[in-house]
């Protein structure tokens, strides 16, 4: 395709990621960890299942991070490696992973920003390694689906968008 880099997530990679996220949640006492692709798609979640719609959350988190990226450039920073949004009880911490993915940590009064930041550093490093290896391995080769899938998908499109 045109340079828009499609990618795929294999089950083995997913498992590795969830192990890392789960360990991080245990050490930090945070509630939920989510990985969101920079284009706004949910990649993985761990911890307490979120009560919100994950699709909506992913698109807004990616937009939030991208907008802040541009703000960083305006003030002469290459990027903000992380962002923090503070709420009354629930807060979120966002961190860049290998320029492709965003780690979002949801936490409450059971822990502190200090502890989350302390523990997240190692996890960011570990995740960056996993993703960098993954992207290098896939080498930008677009994922493919089977021909049967395309036929069925077209039928569904006709049904759903048929009016």
């Amino acid at each position: 395709m045109s340079g828009a880099s499609s990618w795929s997530l294999a089950e083995a990679d997913h498992d590795k990621i969830v192990v890392l996220l789960t360990a991080f949640l245990r050490e930090s006492n945070a509630r939920t960890a989510l990985l969101v692709d920079r284009t706004g798609q949910m990649v993985a979640t761990a911890g307490e299942p979120p009560e919100f719609d994950p699709t909506t959350f992913a698109s807004l988190a990616a937009a939030d991070f991208s907008a802040n990226d541009q703000l960083a450039r305006l003030i002469g920073e290459p990027e903000f490696g992380s962002l923090f949004h503070q709420g009354e009880t629930a807060s979120m911490y966002l961190a860049d992973i290998a320029r492709r993915v965003i780690l979002v940590v949801l936490f409450d009064t059971r822990t502190t920003l200090g502890l989350v930041k302390l523990r997240v550093r190692g996890t960011v490093g570990d995740l960056s390694k996993v993703f960098t290896e993954m992207f290098a391995r896939d080498g930008g080769v677009a994922p493919r689906v089977e021909q049967d899938f395309l036929g069925d998908a077209e039928d569904e499109i006709d049904k759903l968008f048929g009016e």
């Binding site: 828009a4 880099s5 499609s6 990618w7 795929s8 997530l9 294999a10 089950e11 990679d13 997913h14 498992d15 692709d37 284009t39 706004g40 798609q41 990649v43 993985a44 994922p143 689906v145």
Partner: peptide
Amino acid sequence: MSMINYASREINCKL
């Protein structure tokens, strides 16, 4: 960039 997630078995496309 469409993403195929083999773990959650999802395909997402952006229009």
